[in-house]
Design a protein around this nucleic acid. Structure first.
Ligand SMILES: [Zn+2]
Ligand SMILES: [Zn+2]
Lengths: 294, 294
DNA sequence: CAGGCATGCCTG
DNA sequence: CAGGCATGCCTG
């Protein structure tokens, strides 16, 4: 069991509007020194999405987070863990999954197939009410071990200021957006990883879940971005101290034809399973025969 | 017949090195006013590829160019015209055209199929020696009329400073590069169009052509760049006054499998031709029968 | 290096 | 909206 500390200083907008995170190094370098430039993140360099908003009141929010499942901060935990609030995720009954339906969730694969830029409704269940100040974070990681340390970002094409999707948006480089006026875009100071948070609202009276809308802003095939590398998204419920109190991750494929691709992958999955069964069956048979003969 | 005037002021490097063009508006706006910014071209805005080299001696080179084939400067002429020097283009015998050969030229299609970033040898023939100060320009245009007015550029991914191909290169946004230390990258002040020029060297004694190496720095499929839109390249021979004295254009497809794609397109072409022949044949037959019957 | 898959997108 | 092409790239 290891500790994973994160310190963070954020500037918050006084009003509830789309909020712009500014990450500042702990030694207090003045963000205005890098106004107008866009610096790539790694190692103590200030990252600013919106230099224009440096008039914001600085609010010091220190978060210390203890994660119990990974040795390194750079590798976010992906294990599902309902925790004390019974946190889980579901997807509503989607429209009939045509070839190019905007999104579709596969139970067998536990995988979401979704168009780029589509607002996809995700249901967050809790069995016990969370405390005030609880937030819901969403972060993407590459699934394959060879890429898991690389930060997931949008491709250059889609993150460029000229791209229509970036008009009036505080986080053009973030793959995942949450369609809420209270959403908060962060770049972790230590790991450089992107995430988006919203205040978690407990399910309304008589409801078992609260729905939030998420958008995925690149295709899985985007050159120089995801580049055909599968990703997972990790939803974490975090209390006011930044402690993780629940987690749910699932694979996501952002593509032009979610329906088609789901069908294909489910077929592959079945064939693979059938094949394993056959192999396993043969092995058992051999063992059995040996046993009988001896 | 219309005149198409172009005035241009360029800064030239004193030494023969890769040369950086700086386009200045005729009213003499100081380029240093835009140092450090990269402004998109259109309409009187200064474009600079390399603000760092503003210490260059300014050399005033006024070029007035009369083109006789197009009404608008924005639509470059593409007609082949050997002119008084007997200007033409050819390709040497390439390596056996395997599926993924680096480049291959189709005679039937008069089209070059080439890998991205490959130095492709192009032979420039002249039957009569050109004068001192003659240059060879290469420019790309979209083939289809609906895109012909759009300037051909590299995609954002490939033109970004982080792309390896742009290390130490003066013109990251230019699709076409000429592998010569004397090459010159220009952005036309009026049209915004990119081109690369080299001093034209007459064929060596006993030779009929001079070879230059050209590279194409994006795929035809690059999203936000060529975006699967076919292009032509136009080679123009220009005298010291900027007058066009010869022209040759051909289609180019920049792709991952030049051999395969050439084969496919030639097959299509044949089928199409056969089909037209058949249709034409039938028509003739009908006409003939009518003639005989009357 | 060829076969063929993967995946965005065009066409009917 | 499904069929199927186009085209980069992976695999043997
Ligand atoms: Zn993208
Ligand atoms: Zn490109």
């Amino acid at each position: 069991m290891t500790n994973c500390k994160r310190k963070r200083v954020s500037f918050h907008l006084p009003k509830r509007r789309s909020i712009n995170p500014i990450e500042v190094s702990p030694n207090g370098v003045n963000p205005s020194t890098s106004v107008g430039t866009h610096t790539d993140f790694p190692n103590g360099i200030i990252h600013m999405d919106f230099p224009e908003i440096s008039h914001l009141q600085p609010v010091f929010t220190q978060q210390e987070q203890f994660q119990q499942t990974r040795a390194s901060c750079a590798l976010p935990a992906t294990d599902n863990w309902p925790g004390q609030y019974g946190f889980s995720v579901s997807f509503g009954p989607q429209e009939k999954p045509t070839k190019s339906t905007a999104w579709t969730y596969s139970e067998v694969k536990d995988k979401l197939y979704v168009n780029m830029g589509t607002a996809c409704p995700v249901r967050f269940h809790t069995t016990h009410p969370t405390q005030r100040g609880t937030i819901l974070r969403c972060m993407a990681v590459f699934t394959k071990p060879e890429y898991v340390t690389e930060v997931v970002k949008r491709c250059l094409n889609h993150s460029s200021p000229g791209d229509m999707t970036n008009e009036n948006h505080p986080a053009p480089e973030h793959l995942i957006r949450c369609d809420s006026p209270q959403s908060h875009y962060l770049i972790d100071f230590n790991t450089g990883r992107h995430s988006v948070t919203v205040p978690f609202e407990n399910p309304q009276a008589g409801m078992f879940y609260t729905t939030y809308l998420y958008k995925f802003m690149c295709l899985g095939s985007c050159v120089g971005g995801l580049n055909r590398r599968p990703i997972k998204i990790i939803f974490t419920l975090e209390n006011e101290h930044g402690l993780c109190v629940g987690r749910r991750s699932l694979e996501v494929r952002i593509c032009a034809c979610p329906g088609r691709d789901r069908r294909i992958e489910e077929k592959h999955f079945e064939q693979q399973r059938d094949h394993s069964h056959k192999v396993l069956g043969k092995l058992l048979n051999v063992q059995l025969q040996r046993y009988v003969m001896n």
